[in-house]
């Protein structure tokens, strides 16, 4: 309870701080109540959007994995993040919504063992396994399957970004040095047991209600 409370407090501070720093920034729908009733699970289809590609990744204990082995036949929600992302409607949104999904599923006997959450960093320079471990403490419950991954190098990372179509661009200071932040289009991917991408969510579309609904739809239509 203490951990959950601390994590929530951290999240609120993160959101409040970012909100204050961005002035008139409108928080993405994922931070609030969904403004519509989503279509009933199973009443719609989620056609395949291509292969979820493989690649070499590191877990938060610095163990090497093939990404496909992490996907491991589960229904997967995977978001690309970097831990020092300053944009409240970027990576913090992804982690916030995935945390909401975790809270929904942890007591859901039907779904909780079917689903794996993955947060994969696209900044191997600064997001070491240790950094991912520290970051994960703000979000991950000990009793839920949420992996925090990074890569060993840009060489390992770039084919993964290419495969998922995840655009990312480092921001440089006037002197040409890396400013430590990246512009990117937030993307979170829903991946089925056959390693097919079944939905892609960006800032305006990512919400725990629709994600859980889509997970149920996959469960209802795939087995």
């Amino acid at each position: 309870m203490t951990n959950v409370g601390a994590a929530l407090l951290g999240m609120l501070l993160l959101v409040a701080g970012a909100h204050a720093s961005t002035g008139a920034t409108v928080l993405a729908p994922g931070y609030g109540q969904l403004a519509f009733t989503p279509p009933a699970a199973g009443s719609y289809s989620l056609p395949a959007l291509g292969d979820a590609v493989d690649g070499r990744v590191l877990d938060r204990d610095a163990r090497q994995w093939h990404l496909h082995d992490v996907l491991d036949g589960k229904l997967v929600l995977m978001g690309f993040i970097y831990t020092h992302c300053p944009d409240v409607n970027g990576c913090p949104l992804a982690s916030y919504v995935m945390k909401q999904v975790q809270e929904r599923l942890v007591n859901d006997a039907q779904l909780r063992d079917q689903v794996r959450l993955i947060s994969l960093s696209f900044d191997p320079d600064l997001d070491t396994p240790e950094a991912m471990k520290a970051y994960s403490r703000h979000f991950r419950r000990e009793d839920f399957d949420w992996r925090f991954l990074t890569t060993n190098s840009e060489t390992d990372l770039l084919p993964i970004l290419q495969g998922y179509g995840q655009f990312r661009q480092k921001v440089y200071d006037e002197d040409g040095s890396y400013a430590g932040s990246m512009s990117h289009l937030l993307r979170v991917y829903l991946i089925d047991r056959d390693k097919q991408i079944r939905n892609i969510y960006s800032a305006g579309f990512l919400h725990a209600d629709t994600v859980v609904n889509d997970l149920r739809t996959l469960l209802l239509t795939q087995d």
Partner: peptide
Amino acid sequence: AVTGLLSVAS
């Protein structure tokens, strides 16, 4: 300007 909005509901 662009960076600030790339990942926002841009």
